[in-house]
Design a protein around this nucleic acid. Structure first.
Lengths: 304, 304
DNA sequence: GATATCGTGAAGCAGAGCCGAACGATCCCT
DNA sequence: AGGGATCGTTCGGCTCTGCTTCACGATATC
């Protein structure tokens, strides 16, 4: 009888390409992965891997089995979700990967809603950048990822992941009420301003630079940080201007002027889970709570 | 991680209803089955079984998981079939359950065809009655069942089994050329004849009696046997008349008269495999060989 | 109320499957 | 060309899984 654990190992190897990475992803030693793949070959009686230089690659048969492994593992997760649905009360721990702006504004009210409905259900929230979050999702480190997309920078489709739109969050120009740029009425007044922005290694930082350049501004980024609270503080205290998501601005930039950009760009927030888990009742409950929290925020105009 | 072997045990328990029978079907001890079910409950954290008197029955959650187990096991078998399809030559052993009339006439030419195409592929044929054949199919004792249906006695649908029509085999009235009934031209001349037929515990025996009664004949079954060769011999030697399938009659009743019954009834032969195996190349090869052998027989008129 | 049959639990044992260390092969960089 | 990094595999040793056997209590049956 085939062994699901070994199929999972095969799948991780197929996904990641090397024995070492598969081992790391599964918290095994490379030796264990090697042995599992060997055993799997014995089980099915067909060569699944072959050497290519110092690396190991899947044979045609290996790819066939890895593909089946993926759907089997999804089905297993679906089975677990169906099983959880037979429980009268939701319990257990949901692990969520998110980033700062959402943790600040959306997660707390969502958790309040969730706790009212399912007091037994616990949530752990971990701050991660996008790549780590999605990697952790696939390795079962997390059960749900809160992700974001910026206009024109659509994320690639990820295999085994099911995504759901959550919120459109306006990207606002934040200008201090005091200092050199107070009173600016738009980007056209800010070509010489000091900026604070995310580094250009992450999506928001890439987007904001490209956006400003598209309007003829080469921003002088004096304060580069992914910490939006710090960015907000720098704006409030008059040291810089920034483009800040509404979710953060509405609460932490009440002392600054917030202007809509032309054609009012929005970042799109979404939730993502492993495909097999989309029917899991705890997952659904969390997604509902997040959607309601998002709806409540949208109903209140920013800055109020 | 869920364990496929344990899911298979759950599935067998769901199918058969008791720990002991599941154990027997899997060639385990009852204790092992009990422990596997307990372990499975620990794995999923939900009660899957509960006591009902001295027996054990599935809970709602147990039924949910058992259902998933069935589809998972089918998918595993599909995966194995896909894998086998990557092999250049077919090999291994196919185990077939059949009954006498088919083993006599259809299997030999089919195996000849099969051997020409896939000399590495071996076939074991076991003679079984229908229930034992299907039970053995589900427990992996057999890979393919050759079954039959009689007009008006349709078999019930069996879960997890995929069926394919193979041949319509005419049911012929066989009358000796010598003795009291020689020269009879139809059932109307045979109301007082001695008959040979299958016992009324099996499908052919049930059908033949019901058919004769429908035409006003209460057959005097003097020789009750499932051995069609014996039936044929009894007819040839003038001791009885019988209704014999064309597959047997064409070869073993050349010394008797064969008459079509009114509205020429046929038994319908089919092949059946576990659902997951229908794509398996060896299975497909065997089915094709059987179909071709059947076509060759149909092309030749009976009794020639 | 005797007896068969149900499922479960404890003891013991064989084997599965993990890790760590050592190894050979391959690639890469200088 | 050659040293070092990285690849995958193998071996010894150990732990833990998971089987069987045997014994037991509970339930149904006659």
């Amino acid at each position: 009888m085939l062994h699901l654990a070994r199929l999972r190992t095969l799948h991780e190897f197929a996904r990641l390409g090397t024995v070492h990475e598969a081992a790391r992803s599964l918290a095994y030693s490379p030796s264990a992965v090697s042995q599992q793949l060997t055993q799997l070959e014995r089980d099915v009686g067909i060569a699944l891997t072959e050497k290519a230089g110092r690396r190991l690659v899947l044979t045609a048969a290996g790819r066939v089995l890895a593909q089946h492994a993926r759907t089997l593992l999804e089905d297993v997760e679906r089975a677990e979700a169906d099983l959880a649905a037979t429980k009268p009360v939701l319990s257990g721990v949901l692990r969520v990967a998110s980033f700062q702006s959402v943790m600040l504004s959306l997660i707390p009210p969502a958790l309040t809603i969730l706790f009212e409905r399912h007091p037994e259900l616990q949530v752990e929230v971990h701050q991660r950048e996008a790549e780590a979050a999605y990697a952790g999702l696939l390795t079962h480190e997390f059960d749900l990822v809160l992700g974001e997309e910026y206009p024109g920078l659509d994320e690639r489709h990820r295999a085994g992941v099911q995504r759901e739109a959550l919120l459109e969050d306006p990207l606002l120009l934040a200008i201090p009420r005091e200092g050199s740029w107070a009173g600016a009425r738009g980007l056209e007044d800010l070509s010489e301003a000091n900026w604070t922005a995310d580094p250009d290694t992450v999506l928001p930082g890439i987007w904001v630079r490209s956006r400003l350049r598209a309007q003829g501004i080469e921003p002088r980024v004096r304060f580069e940080t992914i910490d939006l609270l710090l960015q907000a503080h720098l704006v409030r205290s008059g040291h810089a201007v920034a483009i800040i998501p509404g979710l953060v601005a509405r609460e932490h930039l009440t002392g600054a002027d917030l202007l809509e950009l032309t054609d009012s760009p929005h970042r799109r927030l979404h939730t993502a889970v492993r495909t097999g888990r989309s029917a899991d009742p705890a997952t659904r409950a969390l997604r509902s709570a997040l959607a309601e929290a998002a709806g409540a925020l949208e109903a209140v105009p920013p800055g109020s």
